[in-house]
Amino acid sequence: MTPTATPVSAPKTATGSRSVTRVVPAVLAAFLGLAVVFIAGHAQSGALHQAAHDVRHSTGFPCH
């Protein structure tokens, strides 16, 4: 049983360290993407609303 325990725990540590370097940028990128969607889809400044009007209606965002 002991010999199998070593190879199982080794990849776990590797995955753990790789997780941090992959999770943080992914979360940051997701927030950036959400910000773009919110500005284009939800922000209510006059000019922005006018410019995005047709798209907001067609993509199902609450518009008026």
Binding site: T15, R22, A29, L34, V37, A52, V55
Partner: peptide, 24 residues
């Protein structure tokens, strides 16, 4: 056209971020 591309770019960035997490 501009705003459709913006919205879908935002969506695509979120989707790829989630894809990269799903790969893990």
């Amino acid at each position: 056209v501009l705003f459709t591309m913006l919205i879908y770019t935002g969506y695509a960035i979120v989707v790829i971020a989630l894809m990269s997490l799903a790969e893990l």
